[in-house]
């Protein structure tokens, strides 16, 4: 049942940004496909493979996942077993809501641990110019992916918080 009242502005903004990340991630998948095509085509047809495709694939997958996981949560895709909660919502709705809020808080906590512990990893990769690949052939910096992980993780935290907000607006 859709909520008759529209979301407050901050939540609508959050959803818009979440969707923006989702679009970026989807575009990245398409880019990967094209890269593979160029590499295979170049190798087979022109004896000229594209350098660095394995490295770019290795980097991109992490970015793809963290760009899209906030939207996955928003659209109800994140995996859970609803049986117990459905039963509880029918019998003890207040308790059920507090348990759901507790679960969202656990989500916020573990994501906070991941994002905040990634910060020094990102800083080091940025400062020492960490790369993937081989010098002289192909190299790509790794900091953009660490940054994406933190951005996606932060948005996931925000989406968990938004669930709590929405729950208590009802």
């Amino acid at each position: 049942m859709p909520d008759p009242r529209p979301d407050p502005a901050p939540l609508r903004l959050l959803d818009a940004v979440t969707q923006g990340l989702n679009v970026l991630g989807s575009a990245l998948i398409l880019v990967l496909m094209v890269l593979f095509g160029l590499d295979v085509g170049g190798r087979v047809l022109f004896n000229a493979p594209v350098s660095g495709v394995p490295e770019l694939v290795t980097l991109s997958i992490v970015a793809i996942v963290f760009l899209q996981i906030p939207q996955a949560l928003r659209s109800g895709r994140m995996t859970r077993s609803e049986g117990f909660l459905t039963m509880l919502h029918a019998r003890a709705p207040v308790a059920a809501r507090w348990i759901e809020t507790l679960f969202d808080l656990i989500g916020i906590a573990v994501l906070w641990i991941i994002v905040s512990t990634t910060w020094p990893i990102f800083a080091k990769a940025w400062e020492s110019n960490e790369f993937i690949g081989a010098l002289g052939d192909f190299t790509a910096p790794v900091w953009p992916v660490k940054l994406t992980l933190m951005v996606g993780g932060a948005m996931l935290i925000a989406q968990f918080a938004a669930r709590i907000w929405r729950r208590h607006l009802q």
């Binding site: 190798r43 004896n47 000229a48 493979p49 350098s51 660095g52 495709v53 394995p54 081989a134 002289g136 052939d137």
Partner: peptide, 13 residues
């Protein structure tokens, strides 16, 4: 892969 430079071979990772 740098070793193949100049041989005319196509280096594949």
């Amino acid at each position: 892969i740098n070793w193949l430079s100049g041989t005319g071979a196509v280096g594949v990772a």
